[in-house]
Every structure is written in structure tokens, then in C-alpha cells.
């Protein structure tokens, strides 16, 4: 049947040299797809299956029965939001300096952001404990100077997590903002100035709105990545207010409760996907992930 239907199309002139069936490159998509199906999609399916069957959907009830879990949902969300806001407040001016500074300065600032981006998260987080712990550098210095009498609680709380995660995720905020600033036509702010706007007004009415796509992309990626962070909250966060990823690890590694662990994981995944999906209403997924770089 199908064979009988094809000849008419064959008589049509080929639309281009590389018609769909003949491009030699098309087949190269398969290894990647098979790989992703087996090692990315299948694991998530397996996790969902475990959550629903080991022993049953009641795994999810833990969020209603145990306040530790319902609270972790809020802790995770609030921490991620907080980190994204703080990172934005730091990254925007930083990106603006990179944009406005002479070339050499921009390069130095770029390297400064890139290095932590690639230095082991574990090493960085561990280094923060050296600074922040009760006997750490900051507390010792302040005690020696007589500024404080009791050591300050700088980690094992929201402050510690925020410091560590903001530090870790700052590059993901700086890059998209910086690249969206670069895309602003350089004449626009001078134009606003000749039209009567003060520097501050020109910034607020022209530059800022035009850099918003980068801000949104950076905010989303930092927010979403914060949701699933594990190492930083585990080392710097409060043992009482766990984030969801910590609970997942705890359930699987310590409690050997695969069903519950999977259920928490699935809720975390769904939360992530929901926020990402909401984000893609505003900007494209690729721009979220790659920070709008072409």
C-alpha cells in the first residue's frame, strides 16, 4: 500500500540537494538519542516506578505526615529563591562593570568568574567551612579583634547555604546578563541622553529593560539549579532544615528506603520541571540553559 502511494511524490522535483531522506548526517542523531533514552530517561522512569510501587503510592504521603518533609519542600523553594535574588543583586552590577570597563579589565573579570565555575564544587564548599565555622578564619579574626565575644553562627544555617550557593552559582547569573548587555545597541543610551534623560533615567528606561532577557534567563537557571543542589546544603546548611536533595540522599544511603527516596526525588523533579515550564513561557529553553549565547 505504502509503496503504491510513494510514486507521485517521486515525480516531484527534489526540493533541495539535501532532501530529508538523503542527508548523510541525519543518521548520526541515533547514538545520542539511544544513549539519552537509556541513561537519562530510563533512570527517571525507574525512579518514578519505584516511588509508586515500593511499596506503593503511599510513599508520597510522607509529605503530609512528616513535617520534616513538608518543611523541606518550603526550605528548598525559599532557599533557591533567596539564592537567585542575592546572586542577581551581585551579578547585575558585576556584569555591568564587565560591560562598561575597558577590554583588559573585562577579560580579568571574566577569568575571575570562570575559575570558580570550573573549580571543584566540593573544594569550594569545603573552603567556605574553613572561613565560616565556629573556629574558622572569620570568627577567630573577629574574636581576636574583640569585635565579638561569642563566635557568630555563620554556617549550618540559611546564611551559610546562601553564601556557598551564591558563590557557586554566580557565574550562571553573570554570563546571561553580560551577554544580553552586549546585545544592546551601544547608541541607545547616548540617544536617551540627547533626548533629555539623566544618566540614571536613561539606565532605568532604556538599558535596564533591554537587559531583562538576560536577567530572566540567569534568574531561572540559578533558581532551578539551586533546587537540586546537594553538596553545599549538606556541608553548610542546617541539619534541621534540610533541602530535598539531602533528604533523597538520606533516604537512599542511610535509611535504605528506596521508595520514599524516589518519591522525594520525583517531587523535586516535578517542581523543577514546573518552574522550567513556567520559564519557557517567557524565554526559550535553550536560552535558559546556554544563557542566550548563540
Amino acid at each position: 500500500m505504502i509503496e503504491e502511494m510513494t510514486p507521485p511524490t517521486k515525480t516531484l522535483p527534489a526540493p533541495s540537494r539535501r532532501s530529508p531522506s538523503r542527508s548523510p548526517w541525519t543518521a548520526l542523531i541515533w547514538p545520542g538519542l539511544v544513549f539519552m533514552a537509556l541513561l537519562f530517561i530510563l533512570p527517571f522512569i525507574q525512579t518514578a516506578v519505584r516511588a509508586l510501587t515500593d511499596p506503593g503510592p503511599q510513599n508520597f504521603a510522607i509529605f503530609f505526615t512528616d513535617p520534616v518533609y513538608s518543611r523541606s519542600l518550603i526550605t528548598t523553594f525559599v532557599t533557591a529563591l533567596f539564592v537567585a535574588v542575592v546572586a542577581l543583586a551581585i551579578a547585575y552590577p558585576y556584569a555591568y562593570i564587565m560591560y562598561a570597563a575597558p577590554k583588559a579589565m573585562t577579560a580579568v573579570m571574566m577569568v575571575l568568574v570562570l575559575l570558580p565555575f570550573f573549580t571543584s564544587l566540593l573544594v569550594r564548599t569545603y573552603a567556605w567551612t574553613v572561613w565560616l565555622q565556629e573556629t574558622g578564619i572569620i570568627n577567630s579574626a573577629l574574636l581576636n579583634l574583640g569585635v565579638i565575644e561569642e563566635p557568630l553562627q555563620l554556617m549550618r544555617n540559611t546564611l551559610g547555604v546562601t553564601i556557598g550557593m551564591t558563590h557557586a552559582l554566580l557565574p550562571f547569573m553573570v554570563f546571561p546578563i553580560y551577554s544580553s548587555m552586549l546585545r544592546i545597541q551601544p547608541d541607545l543610551v547616548p540617544a536617551a541622553r540627547t533626548l533629555g534623560a539623566t544618566p540614571a533615567l536613561a539606565f532605568r528606561t532604556v538599558f535596564l529593560p533591554l537587559s531583562l532577557p538576560g536577567v530572566m534567563s540567569g534568574f531561572l537557571i540559578v533558581f532551578v539549579m539551586s533546587l537540586g543542589y546537594y553538596v553545599t546544603p549538606a556541608l553548610l546548611g542546617s541539619p534541621r532544615d534540610s533541602m530535598m536533595s539531602e533528604l533523597v540522599v538520606n533516604q537512599i544511603e542511610q535509611q535504605i528506603q528506596f521508595g520514599t527516596g524516589s518519591a522525594i526525588g520525583i517531587v523535586l523533579l516535578v517542581l523543577t520541571l514546573a518552574i522550567l515550564f513556567a520559564g519557557t513561557r517567557i524565554i526559550s529553553f535553550k536560552d535558559i540553559v546556554t544563557g542566550g549565547r548563540p
Binding site: 547616548p190 541622553r193 540627547t194 533626548l195 533629555g196 534623560a197 539623566t198
Partner: peptide, 9 residues
């Protein structure tokens, strides 16, 4: 400053 010059560009 440019914004007080009243010059169109």
C-alpha cells in the same frame, strides 16, 4: 551634560 543641552541628535 548631554541631557541638559537640548540638542536633538
Amino acid at each position: 551634560p548631554p541631557h541638559l543641552r537640548g540638542i536633538g541628535m
